[in-house]
Design a protein around this nucleic acid. Structure first.
Lengths: 180, 180
DNA sequence: CGGAACATGTAAAGTGTTACATGATTCA
DNA sequence: TGAATCATGTAACACTTTACATGTTCCG
């Protein structure tokens, strides 16, 4: 999807409460934020450079060890303002889930197609392991209920992801049972 | 997302049971298939040309009215084979939902942020009207239960979409109530 | 000292959206 | 006859992925 450069807001958002290097941000996309957005380091580094040029973020170069340069970015007042403007702006577009499994399903017209049980089984396994993963993360991050107050949005979206997976698995199981 | 040209399979899938023009396909993306995939006509026409060159689809040019040329495409045996190979191939990647609302939510740390009720209200309305829309479509397409047998995959994905929206609204309402 | 992880970038190719462009047909 | 819809295409731009490229630090 050609979006309206949402990545820039993600970077600002990640830098809102803490200073981070490009590499730190890259790792964030492999963890929590990766559940809702994804980006490769080849997008992140140029975008950080761009945000820096627009004075939305600032950076400090520190030397790790002998000579490795780490660029630690932090948000500016200008960047914080832009981030907040985006957060409070309406979100009228519903995301279209480009889901390859559902797409394949769509093209199976025969109720007794022998591929259906296999396809469902595969998806059930995938989503079950994902669910386990999400629940583990919830325990780690928000097992201590006080953390929910401190990082409420994160808690909300993680809770949503878990409920989504649970419902999805329920739906998959419902039809899978039906095939047998 | 830079995908592995999934659009080509969508086009083949749509042409599996019926001959269609590029314009017909474009309209399909505004209806049923639009729930699971989307594409503009500027992608569709070149892709149809490409599939035609690879002899995965064939076409017949008919004249509508006085001189308007309509290109009606239909799938070839080769195309049908490629479509089926894709359908039965594993689907190991879980789609990442790039959801702007959840992203914004993620960056709200304060439980009492005054924007939360507004944001939830907006989303509830959006998803409620979407749900109504989906249910209408289910009535039209599958009110007659026999149609479910004939177009089973389509029925499945529509059923999924409805359940997804219902669960989503339930989740939104659950937290929205909590804010008050 | 060697491998994994840290750290940062660019290039090329593919995918997707918006804008540009044109013309025909239908229906009120 | 004018507006909506039908119908098909290309161009420019924006976004995303994969590959290319290089060097450092940490830890066993």
């Amino acid at each position: 999807m050609a979006q309206k450069n949402i990545l820039q807001y993600v970077l600002l958002g990640l830098l809102k409460n803490q200073s981070l290097s490009g590499y730190d941000i890259k790792k964030s996309f492999e963890k929590d934020i990766g559940e809702f957005w994804q980006a490769n380091h080849s997008q992140i580094y140029p975008q950080l450079k761009n945000l820096n040029e627009r004075t939305l973020i600032d950076k400090e170069v520190i030397i790790a060890g002998e000579k490795l340069e780490k660029k630690i970015y932090f948000i500016t007042d200008k960047g914080l303002k832009m981030l907040n403007d985006w957060i409070v702006s309406p979100t009228p577009e519903l995301s279209v889930n480009k889901n390859e499994f559902h797409l394949k399903l769509f093209f199976i017209s025969d109720k007794n197609d022998p591929n259906l049980p296999i396809m469902f089984q595969e998806q059930i396994q995938l989503h079950q392991s994902k669910l386990i993963n999400l629940k583990e993360r919830r325990t780690i991050l928000f097992g201590n209920k006080e953390n929910r107050e401190v990082n409420y949005g994160h808690y909300l979206v993680l809770d949503y992801a878990i409920q989504r997976e649970e419902n999805h698995i329920e739906w998959l199981n419902n039809f899978y049972d039906y095939f047998e």
